[in-house]
């Protein structure tokens, strides 16, 4: 089946002025790859600053004016140009934003969910919100209500691609699980769901595949099932993430993700990598290994294993 969304070697950089009039190009995303099929939930995990939200804004064509995007972005097999993105966003491609701050604070919720009153009520009702919710202002919503309102803004259209940017922070595990359940329903309805999150554990509860971002690169794309066993994971960073999960001992690794503009040549994870070798400073291919893809010269999981 043809994928809904294909991201190949995507880079997003910012033109910045620092110290007076000197301009510099700040690469925020350098090598992102991702494919997403209809009916699938793909989780994009990575820590803050790995370029997750930028990917979302890039797909929707709403990057700031000083951003430059290069590489390939295809929607239903056709290049997703800015013009095409502008025509599709809000209709076929929808964003579920992070927080209630993405709603106009001075406009009632109802008209923000859908301009058509009846339709708005219907969509809110689908998520267990009564018609009175439409008459509330965003500041009157509780955390869980706000999430459901934000999802209903997406469902008011009939989306083929749902981009959810951190839809669960600030919710307890049960509420977060319920919200993620709604995304799984959307996928079961035929939509492709791109779930952007830093919560690997939660993402694994609904995702079919997981893309791991590190310092603006996709380091691994793996079926969610691979996360059941440490040995099935390919990239050392993915294994480090796995080790850091509470049920696997909460083990951290030293160091921090490098900032954009200070990323070493070659593999950005090399300075923190336990398996680092001399050639890690050179070109790193994105290779297919055992049904997943990994950007590593010395993947942990070999072709045969």
């Amino acid at each position: 089946m043809r994928p809904i969304l294909e991201v190949e070697n995507l880079s997003i950089s910012f033109l910045q002025y620092d110290r007076g009039a000197r301009r510099r190009v700040l690469p925020a995303i350098r090598r992102l790859d991702l494919t997403l099929e209809a009916g699938q939930v793909a989780a994009v995990v990575g820590s803050s600053g790995s370029g997750k939200s930028l990917l979302a804004h890039g797909i929707l064509g709403i990057l700031p004016y000083n951003a430059r995007m290069e590489g390939t972005l295809r929607y239903r097999g056709e290049p997703l140009t800015p013009q095409r993105a502008a025509a599709l966003r809000g209709r076929e491609i929808v964003l579920v934003p992070q927080s209630v701050g993405y709603l106009d604070p001075l406009m009632k919720v109802g008209p923000q969910v859908a301009r058509d009153r009846e339709k708005g009520r219907g969509v809110l009702g689908r998520y267990g919100l009564g018609p009175e919710t439409g008459d509330l202002y965003p500041f009157e919503l509780s955390g869980g209500m706000a999430r459901r309102v934000l999802i209903s803004t997406a469902v008011a259209a009939s989306p083929a691609l749902v981009v959810a940017d951190e839809p669960t922070p600030g919710l307890d595990a049960r509420a977060a699980g319920r919200i993620l359940g709604h995304f799984r329903e959307l996928a079961q309805g035929g939509a492709a769901v791109l779930l952007i999150t830093h919560d690997l554990e939660l993402a694994l509860t609904i995702a079919h595949k997981v893309a791991v971002f590190y310092a603006g690169e996709t380091v691994e794309e793996a079926p969610a099932a691979d996360f059941a066993r440490r040995e099935d994971l390919r990239h050392p960073y993915t294994r480090a993430l796995w080790d850091a999960l509470p049920q696997h001992g909460f083990t951290p690794i030293p160091g921090t993700q490098p900032y954009p503009g200070a990323i070493p040549a070659g593999c950005p994870f090399a300075p923190r990598c336990p398996k680092r070798q001399a050639d890690c400073g050179g070109a790193i291919p994105y290779q297919t290994v055992a049904g997943g893809r990994v950007r590593c010269l010395h993947p942990e999981r070999g072709e045969g294993s």
């Binding site: 804004h57 929707l60 709403i62 502008a86 966003r89 809000g90 929808v94 964003l95 701050g101 993405y102």
Partner: peptide, 9 residues
Amino acid sequence: YVLFARARG
């Protein structure tokens, strides 16, 4: 919220 409005077309 304006960014989101843009994202909604």
